[in-house]
Nucleic acid binder design. Structure first.
Lengths: 174, 174
DNA sequence: CACAACATGTAAGATGTTACATGATTGA
DNA sequence: TCAATCATGTAACATCTTACATGTTGTG
């Protein structure tokens, strides 16, 4: 996914430095979208080249100087255009290496396959518990987006967990 | 996701041409993973450079000459290594543009936002019906991997549908 | 004859990860 | 003093998309 609009959206609220942008997006996404500086700084540079953002350097009392980025009117316009646009449907729930390996499960020794399945199940269950406790923490004070995304994670991880249960049952009796 | 192992896995079963590999993977994945030749042919070339596959040209009775690729013993070894390896957990269900736009929902006019939500819901419901009918088609003759992946899609799309229902209800009463 | 299916590729660019390189400040 | 946090960046590589370029064979 393009980092561009996540950055612009954040700058719609207030100016941020590169470092802060990384922290902020990762926090918002519940650490599900790790941002690398190797992607972030070039992105900010490109946005600046296109005049969608500007930046100024603040002399740092602490650490190095800070480049603080702000969105420009042009950036705002482009962000709004993106926001109002219909987004493509993407169901990437099966586009990952683990799922791909299911096509070739019969090429694995049974024991090995079962071990991998169970391991993945344990991992998923654990993650499900984490999502559930996140979800329970959401009260009235929690912003809408946060509540909604926490719920989304919970439902999808639940689906994944349920799927793995069925797969393991089917596989072990086949 | 890397195309490499999907190709190798397919070649584990039998030799295929580039064209056939595209057809075959897309069919296996229920058209959820569209393969572009712009990715496929360079990938095959790289695999050949590494000696994980070999190829020979068949003089075509039909159309152009066909390059038929086969996996080498080295390729088999590397594929098996990959297959037995633990795969990283990835929950990309929230890493898409539509979900990202939720962070900024309050920057949109209410009417516009509701329209986009409903549109997405209709789209998802439609897709859910499609997945359901796919799932019902799976009988005893259906291969294990196919049955299992169809089920996976169904559960995730169901989760997505349910989520959208809740979001729409919450949003319209907020 | 037109169009779908068969068949292979390149070039440019978008997007993303990993590893490297540097250096200050704060708190235990 | 040592580790964590704050702070910015580059280089190489991996992955993937889109557009372009070409040509044959079978079917209606």
């Amino acid at each position: 996914m393009s980092l561009k609009y996540a950055v612009l959206g954040l700058l719609m609220e207030s100016p941020h430095s590169g470092y802060e942008i990384k922290q902020e997006i990762e926090r918002m996404m519940g650490d599900l979208w790790p941002i690398s500086y190797g992607q972030l700084y070039p992105t900010l540079k490109k946005l600046a080249d296109e005049s969608w953002v500007t930046w100024k350097t603040l002399q740092g009392k602490k650490a190095k100087d800070k480049n603080v980025y702000s969105i420009t009117p042009e950036g705002v316009q482009n962000f709004r255009r993106w926001l109002g646009k219909e987004k493509k449907r993407i169901h990437h729930s099966i586009k990952d290496e683990f799922t791909l390996s299911f096509f070739f499960l019969d090429m694995m020794e049974r024991e090995k396959a079962e071990k991998l399945l169970l391991k993945k199940y344990e991992e998923t269950k654990e993650y499900y518990e984490k999502c559930m406790s996140e979800h329970k923490k959401c009260g009235n004070g929690t912003p809408f987006y946060r509540r909604v995304l926490t719920k989304k994670m919970l439902l999808h991880v639940e689906a994944e967990k349920q799927w793995l249960e069925e797969v393991i049952r089917e596989y072990s009796t086949s």
